[in-house]
C-alpha cells in the first residue's frame, strides 16, 4: 500500500506530539513541584534528554506526591 509523503508526515505527527506533551507535562509539573525527589536541574535534563523514558521516570520516581 503506497502512501503519499504528506500523509506519512501526518501519521508520524501523533508520535511527536505525545512525546512532546509528556515532556512539557513533566517540565511544567517539575517547575511547580516544591519538593521533588532530587535536584530540579537533574530532573530537567532527564526529562528533556531521555526520550519517552525520561518523563516516565520523573513521574514515577522524581515527582513525589504534592
Amino acid at each position: 500500500m503506497a502512501m503519499e509523503e504528506m500523509d506519512l508526515l501526518w501519521l508520524l505527527l501523533p508520535i511527536v506530539l505525545i512525546q512532546l506533551a509528556l515532556m512539557i507535562f513533566a517540565l511544567v509539573d517539575l517547575v511547580k513541584n516544591p519538593n521533588p525527589n532530587g535536584p530540579k536541574w537533574m530532573w530537567a535534563l532527564i526529562i528533556v534528554l531521555i526520550n519517552i523514558i525520561g518523563p516516565i521516570v520523573y513521574f514515577v520516581v522524581g515527582r513525589r506526591n504534592y
Binding site: 508520524l12 508520535i15 505525545i18 507535562f25 519517552i52 516516565i56 513521574f59 515527582r63 506526591n65
Partner: peptide
C-alpha cells in the same frame, strides 16, 4: 482526584498509545 491531579490518568495511557503506534510505524 489523586489520579487526576498526579496526572496518572493522562500519562499512563499516553505511554501505552505511544508504544501502540510505534510498533506498526
Amino acid at each position: 482526584r489523586e489520579n487526576l491531579r498526579n496526572y496518572k490518568i493522562f500519562w499512563i495511557p499516553a505511554v501505552f498509545i505511544l508504544f501502540g503506534i510505534m510498533e506498526p510505524v
